[in-house]
Design a binder for these strands. Structure first.
Lengths: 212, 212
DNA sequence: GTCTCCTTGTGATTATTTTCACAATGTTAT
DNA sequence: ATAACATTGTGAAAATAATCACAAGGAGAC
């Protein structure tokens, strides 16, 4: 099963971060070998689903024993593209932007927050959680200088499209968008939408179904 | 097509927040009638998918014309269970908890943040974004007093399971979990996992596929 | 080395989701 | 009222994903 020749199902890719989570924990606990059944129970999925997912990446397990945690962890990180560190900039130093700037989870996954961009003069020139705040006007210049690749949009919905245009023009390759708006960008720009409200609305839906 | 008799596909439910987003925008713009094609283009999906999704809730559109924005918006809110206001508590007044306490999007969707719970004595007794901060020890008492239903877990991963146990014992019906851990809770408790890292890792994966 | 046990990897099957294509049915113009 | 047109709603078909069940193969005991 040659990598690259096989199409990896979208559903499989979407579960990789979950597997990363579980394996990271096993690794920290010093566990070196786990069975698909153990991982599956921890994550609330079936073991055959896990095995099928992993099978797209070649034989990673040891029959009769299970999976080598370190080996599997490495392979998943590789598939997710985590070997290479990526530089992010957060656009919009409001509550959410500030929280993300200080979020350890990003650093831990090889994502370096190198800059914050703002229009509020009061914040410009300061540092938030150790990240320098630049004026939005310097977006183009700093992107080149700092080698920024991913723009995190934490601006109000009303400003998001305009900021996205600036981001594209500045040379960013990808956008992680927290504004509740679909963005119009050139096809070569990768956009990942993050809708916090969607998650909790799904929860509310289930709650209403059960309780009325 | 009687509601209740038909099973609504999971995939359909997961797209409702998206539809809510688009329709809310049309409503704000004063647009009263839209076609499935217009909405679909705005959201980057196909119009037939949108129509099929909506068809599970009965005939909501007007053939030859499109969908009445206000009517459809109301119906989607109803399906998502947004008629009834829900009271949340945020457990963990760190960066993320603080950001969520001040997040307008929750209030706008009928979700009222009524309390923050913390162990840090320095924060207890204060108010963050207008939300009072209580000691974690008062969880049980305040849950009953304030009528809290949904617990938002923004505590470190290491503490999440213990806090979840407390939350369940306090009488919460649902948990919105931001800690990168699967929780073990009784079956009647609804858990919604929110993994911020998953989103950006998917983005990184696409980026690596394209650029190496 | 052989036997037994265990767990993976995977073809086959079933379930779910998406797309297609068009009849049904409403609107608008005249 | 009628005709021309636009858009929905939906069965049928195609694509995708999840589950099942078991052969393949490695580990460990003796």
């Amino acid at each position: 099963m040659e990598e690259g020749l096989v199409v990896i199902p979208k559903a499989t890719v979407s579960r990789l971060p979950l597997y990363l989570q579980a394996l990271t924990e096993y690794d920290h606990l010093g566990i070196t070998l786990v069975s698909s059944e153990e991982i599956a129970q921890k994550l609330g999925i079936t073991s055959s689903q896990l095995r099928k997912d992993l099978s797209y990446f070649g034989g990673l397990g040891i029959r009769g024993a299970g999976y080598d945690v370190a080996c599997l962890l490495g392979r998943i990180k590789e598939i997710l593209g985590m070997q290479k560190k990526r530089r992010l900039a957060i656009i919009g130093a409001g509550k959410l932007g500030t929280a993300l700037a200080g979020y350890r989870g990003l650093q831990q996954h090889g994502l370096e927050v190198k800059a914050l961009f703002e229009i509020d003069k009061g914040k410009i020139g300061t540092a938030i959680a150790g990240v320098p705040v630049y004026p939005l006007a310097e977006l183009h210049a700093q992107t080149a200088r700092l080698g920024l690749e991913i723009a995190v949009l934490t601006v109000p919905a009303a400003a998001a499209q305009k900021v996205a245009d600036l981001v594209v023009e500045a040379g960013f390759k990808a956008i992680w968008n927290f504004a509740p708006i679909r963005l119009e960008v050139p096809e070569n720009i990768i956009v990942q939408y993050e809708d916090l409200v969607a998650g909790v609305l799904t929860l509310v839906h289930h709650l209403s179904r059960k309780l009325g």
